[in-house]
Amino acid sequence: MLRFILTRLSILIPTFIGVTLLTFAMIRLIPGDPIELLVGERGLDPARHAKLRAEMGLDRPVLEQYWHYLTGVLQGDLGKSIVTKQPVVDEFFTLFPATVELSICAMLFAVALGIPAGILAAVRRGSVFDHSVMGAALTGYSMPIFWWGLLLIILFSGILGWTPVSGRISLLYFFEPVTGFMLIDSWLSGESGAFKSAVRHLILPTVVLGTIPLAVIARQTRSAMLEVLHEDYVRTARAKGLAPWRVIGFHALRNALIPVITVIGLQVGVLFGGAVLTETIFSWPGIGKWIIDSIHRRDYPSVQGGILLIATTVIIINLLVDLVYGLINPRIRHRR
């Protein structure tokens, strides 16, 4: 087991180098530099511009800049934001809980609806329910996130007025963050209505961000269940005289979950990608929105550091998923 974890962790090294190289190169391929964007339309005389570039080290050869950046990363220093002058790590971890909170809710939403829907669709294969669920899943999967988000805002926030348009909690409430998770903090604050407000703010972003994972999980669960339902051991379970819910929800599902867990792990990466758009639409103060803002400001260290940290998170989550995979699939656990 330890060897398994170490092998998986060793993959981190080339991935890190790849991620740093890519983000470093790509942000510099976008025209404009941070200084031009800071001063905006006021303009800046070329001498002053050159002096600021030199101060930031942007006048050095690109390879040297990369080397400087890489050695910093290896020492745990992701640099400081050009705009706010705060360490990138601090900024990241201030905003990270908001994204994590949203992602967890979106994933719970996707799993809680996707797995039962997939099971039912498989059991009632070819029925109206099956066709509607699979049709809806395909639609959800194909729909651009920003458009889907705007549609929901127009309907539920605009026309119906049920949910707020943006933010994490109503401006009426203020309390010191304890965990960074608004649901927990608002609960702890004891202010009446704060928790309810946090929940109301979470609903639409959760639905929008969870839609694609929901579609993928429902489809994967359905196909895995269809495969498993024809297995001999499902017939054995029925031959024992077990009730249908136990045959399907226990004997079959346990086996069908193995590929579904893998897909859930892969969706974590998709989730962070989706968070960029979702947070922008709902002004959700998380990592996604922060990275978009940093790209607009050509805040090189923030973009580089932020993406590197997100990549690390995704890799670690996938490692955890692989470990869970071993837990639910004894055939993997007992190898060697």
């Binding site: 001999d232 051991y233 017939r235 054995t236 031959a239 004997h251 346990r254 086996n255």
Partner: peptide, 13 residues
Amino acid sequence: IFQEPMTSLNPCF
């Protein structure tokens, strides 16, 4: 009881 003992038992339990 069935023909294929290797697949007739649930591998997860």
